[in-house]
Design a protein around this nucleic acid. Structure first.
Lengths: 135, 135
DNA sequence: ATGCCTGCAAAGCTTTTGCAGATGC
DNA sequence: GCATCTGCAAAAGCTTTGCAGGCAT
């Protein structure tokens, strides 16, 4: 019974090969932000015979279970990353495509204040900074 | 020579019926954030025989020309709005779907500071707050 | 044994593109 | 007249879904 097995059980999903493999890939990948296609390719590279439909289904379940987060940068395909419970936002370099994570408590508070000022309660947000290297 | 005609000329686009109509729709619509499909329907309702492909092509040109802005809320279809030169971000009510615009100078500055702290220069950003009414 | 899970293929939805004819300048 | 623009239809890109069989418990 590996750690991955336990994580799956805990969220009420049956322990199956595709789920274990996908969870491992997301936990160990160098590139923390992978598309469904990236994951599909990683599976095939590892010799696993998993369909792309299963990849999407599993990712959807993982997201619903809070194991991973899904992001939509601009208009490209969605990217997924393990949810380690440390909330952060993203910075995307427009020249290299590199993704940098950051967290800023002040910006988080400001958002709540802005929502409140308009008579709302903040339930989530999406912040992406598009940047380029300083000359 | 209407105002719309002049705006089109100024950005180097030929003055054609589809372009004039789409610009008018975006300038006068009650709902400031329309999808390509919304615009296509508005055109058909007005008795104009314009193809959806033209709608997309014209919107892409308008965006490149700086006449309009394109936004991707969550994972739905892109929405477009007239660029009146007043930068703002968006708040989307998760219950009603209502879109509220806001501008906060402090949050803008913070973003530049965060980019700089990481050795980058801010070239753009995407901020959407998902909110619900205060009980 | 049962119900959940999977692969495959097909469809869905949004957006883009090729092409032949139409239109603005 | 010539280049640009348009509508149509087809294709592309990403994602979801139906179905028949397979696997975990």
């Amino acid at each position: 019974m590996t750690l991955e097995d336990q994580e799956l059980k805990k969220v009420g999903l049956k322990v199956t090969v595709p789920r274990i493999k996908i969870l491992q890939i997301l936990e160990n990948c160098l590139n923390r932000h992978m598309t469904a296609e990236d994951i599909y390719q990683a599976l095939r590279d590892a010799g696993e015979d998993v369909g792309i439909a299963t990849v999407y289904r599993v990712l959807t379940q993982f997201e619903a279970a809070g194991l991973i987060e899904r992001h939509n940068f601009d208009n490209g395909p969605a990217v997924y990353e393990i949810d380690r419970g440390e909330h952060h936002d993203h910075m995307v370099c427009t020249e290299s495509g590199k993704v940098i994570e950051f967290h800023d408590a002040e910006i988080e508070k400001l958002q709540e204040r802005i929502a409140a000022k308009n008579g709302y309660q903040l339930v989530g947000h999406n912040l992406v900074l598009y940047v380029k290297p300083l000359t």
